[in-house]
């Protein structure tokens, strides 16, 4: 391994200062992604700022009735937190659909947002990849792209964001609290990650060195939810397609509906106008299919992943059907 310096930060200010004063510095939290990337020479930081001692592990109620998830709380603690289980079961289900128990015990909420794509080529330094090495080309577009995106792709990159947790956070309208050299600010989840465009090396809209301190869930909760994850084995595999579905009915018609897709784009995919179209409609399979057709209208398949388009549509219908069966 290449050598690097290391600092274990004990408060937020130190962490932000440390990372912003060091050359080629990276944060490390649970380490479940950054260390893997370092081992295959995809990330080669000269300095690591360890966040694990920061006092950001709490999960607590916010003044506006929502819930704040500390960036350093682990995925496991978050998923099994009583408040999360009761009020945000969609988030709990999504987290528990990801990785393995061991990984969830290490992985942090902040790290989950920043985990990088699982595109095979991104991980293999012998291959061209615009995300890893801007301008080198995209091996996936004409290569083996079974796990790649069908929505919001660009000619430079067709990678997906691999997180499950983020799909639920997107569906639930979470907000991300960030601290940087410019102070503190809040980012809507929908604006946190970005599409590849002509800068696929950027996964999100933050600047390097910005620290996520927590994630806020809004006061509004849904009781009828489902996280449906389709993958190539029963556990311990990334989503081929996933759906975070939340719905509320009133008098037999749809009162509220929020949905995000995973495994299909460079960011959790939301289509608010398609959701709006559903308000007042009856919750039938046909109507959910209509939603699915609308959301995937602009989808574009590549040589090995076109199946995702129809599969995603079916997954949407199934997720809402199951959400409505939830008691």
């Amino acid at each position: 391994m290449n050598s690097f310096s290391y600092l274990r930060a004990v408060n937020v200010a130190d962490a932000v200062e440390d990372i912003n004063t060091k050359n080629k510095a990276k944060f490390i939290a649970g380490g479940t992604n950054i260390l893997d990337l370092m081992k295959v020479n995809v990330e080669r930081p000269e300095h690591l700022t360890d966040l694990t001692r920061l006092p950001l592990t709490e999960i607590q109620n916010t003044e506006d009735g929502g819930l704040r998830l500390g960036a350093l709380a682990t995925n496991a603690v978050t998923a099994w937190n009583e408040q999360v289980q009761q009020r945000y079961p969609l988030l709990a289900k999504a987290i528990l659909a990801g990785a393995s128990a061991q990984l969830r015990n290490m992985a942090t909420n902040g790290g989950n947002l920043f985990q990088r794509t699982r595109c095979y080529y991104f991980y293999d330094t012998a291959t061209p990849c615009n995300k890893r090495e801007p301008g080198s080309g995209c091996s996936a577009i004409n290569g083996y792209n079974r796990i790649h995106a069908v929505l919001g792709t660009s000619e430079h990159c067709i990678a997906t964001h691999p997180s499950d947790m983020c799909v639920a956070l997107a569906a639930l309208d979470a907000k991300v609290n960030v601290t940087g050299t410019k102070g503190d600010w809040v980012v809507d989840f929908a604006d946190f990650h970005r599409l590849p465009g002509d800068q696929p090396e950027l996964d999100n809209n933050l600047q390097p060195g910005d620290l996520v301190t927590s994630i806020d869930l809004p006061a509004k909760t849904f009781s009828k939810v489902q996280y449906l994850k389709l993958r190539d084995r029963q556990s311990y595999a990334f989503a081929i397609v996933s759906v975070a579905a939340a719905i509320e009915l009133e008098g037999g018609t749809i009162k509220e509906i929020q949905m995000a897709l995973g495994g299909v784009a460079h960011k959790p995919w939301r289509d608010k106008s398609a959701e709006a179209m559903m308000i007042g409609k009856t919750p039938t399979k046909e109507n959910f299919r209509l939603l699915a057709e609308t959301v995937l209208a602009t989808a574009k398949g590549y040589s090995y992943n076109s199946f995702k388009i129809e599969l995603a549509k079916r997954a949407i219908v199934r997720a809402f059907t199951e959400a409505l069966q939830a008691v």
């Binding site: 699982r118 095979y120 080529y121 991980y123 293999d124 012998a126 291959t127 091996s139 004409n142 290569g143 083996y144 079974r146 796990i147 190539d232 084995r233 029963q234 556990s235 311990y236 595999a237 990334f238």
Partner: peptide, 25 residues
Amino acid sequence: SMMDKNLGRFINHDLYEYHIPVNKD
């Protein structure tokens, strides 16, 4: 093992993308 025909290289060369069963399977 997925062969990338352009690179002539097996491309899913690790255990998270080269799938073998987990307990749940």
